[in-house]
Simulated scan of single mutants.
Amino acid sequence: MTDQAFKSGFVTIIGRPNVGKSTFMNEVIGQKIAIMSDKPQTTRNKIQGVYTTEDTQIVFLDTPGIHKPKSKLGHRMMQAAENALQEVDAILFVIDAAAGLGAGDRFIIERLSGIRTPVFLVINKIDLVHPEDLLPLIQTYKDLYPFQEIVPISALHGNNVRTLLDLIKQYMPEGPQYYPSDQMTDHPEQFVCAEMIREKILHLTREEIPHSIAVYIEDMRRQDNGVVYIGAVIMVERDSQKGIIIGKQGALLKEIGKLAREDMERLLGSKIFLELWVKVKKDWRNRDNVLNELGFKLE
């Protein structure tokens, strides 16, 4: 009796902003690699998450929520999302069951026309709707696109996620194991740590802040005492935003640092000494040199 062939493949996760793509990714991987927030357009880069079992490896690409761009950053985010539709083995189109069909979904379905890759309709947040409301919703989407599979889930609570994974496995071709079994993302630790800081800012600040910030790690090293030192810069567009993030007597910046450090210690399994600085860089979202430095490169 021969051993079963190993299967591997790439799966893109697409959908409108705030439908739960990152929550799904984190549930599958079992560790926070994509930041979560109730603010739209939280994900800015293609976050690659790796799910490995004894006989299968699935590499997930969590893309920025597809939206109408309003800056150079927005255009690069959209290009990243659309590029991720190419040369993958399956596409998960995630929708919000509670929100229903919107113009953004129609826009994405237009982008899917002509794509030969199998597309799954993943109906997320089913815990927020009555089961009887699901059938009409499914029919609405079926009338717009010939989905290969339709799977209702709750990424937040894990409902039906394993069923979805089993279905995805069936569509994966025979192939190599691209990453070691214990590797969960292709992003370096510095990137994940910067994202954890940005997540805390999104949770703790008002509406005008989220899209105006970027975070990058200037220095990360393990000291002789075993503590990992991390120096990070929070970049904003205006002086007033700098004041908001620092907070009264530095209180908000301290809270951001405390919460981010707790996540980092879980991620790295080490004590962390975290230093944060806030710098103003006017209109950085429309400056090509800054976007390139932050990794939002045109492909």
Rank of each mutant, 00 (worst) to 15 (best):
275 E>D: 14
110 E>A: 09
282 K>M: 08
117 T>N: 05
219 D>I: 00
110 E>P: 02
167 L>Q: 14
105 D>M: 10
207 E>A: 03
36 M>D: 00
291 L>R: 09
292 N>R: 14
218 E>N: 15
33 I>S: 02
37 S>Y: 08
274 L>P: 04
274 L>R: 05
83 N>C: 05
148 Q>R: 13
281 K>D: 15
19 V>F: 06
269 G>D: 07
215 V>M: 08
214 A>N: 00
52 T>E: 01
74 G>T: 04
238 R>E: 15
75 H>Q: 15
287 R>F: 01
228 V>I: 15
160 N>A: 10
296 F>W: 13
268 L>M: 15
23 T>K: 11
280 V>N: 01
186 D>N: 15
7 K>P: 06
62 D>T: 03
27 E>V: 00
105 D>N: 11
121 L>V: 04
32 K>N: 13
250 G>W: 03
122 V>T: 13
155 A>H: 13
97 A>C: 07
176 P>L: 01
273 F>S: 07
44 R>P: 07
267 L>Y: 15
59 V>S: 01
90 A>C: 06
212 S>D: 04
228 V>D: 03
245 I>N: 10
294 L>A: 03
170 Q>F: 06
181 S>C: 02
297 K>G: 09
65 G>P: 10
203 H>Y: 08
82 E>N: 09
2 T>N: 11
148 Q>V: 12
181 S>F: 11
76 R>G: 05
203 H>C: 00
113 S>N: 11
281 K>G: 06
94 V>C: 10
38 D>C: 04
54 E>N: 12
118 P>E: 12
59 V>N: 00
41 Q>H: 10
116 R>D: 14
139 Q>N: 11
255 E>M: 11
239 D>E: 15
289 N>T: 14
186 D>M: 14
102 G>D: 10
197 I>L: 07
239 D>N: 06
185 T>P: 10
139 Q>K: 11
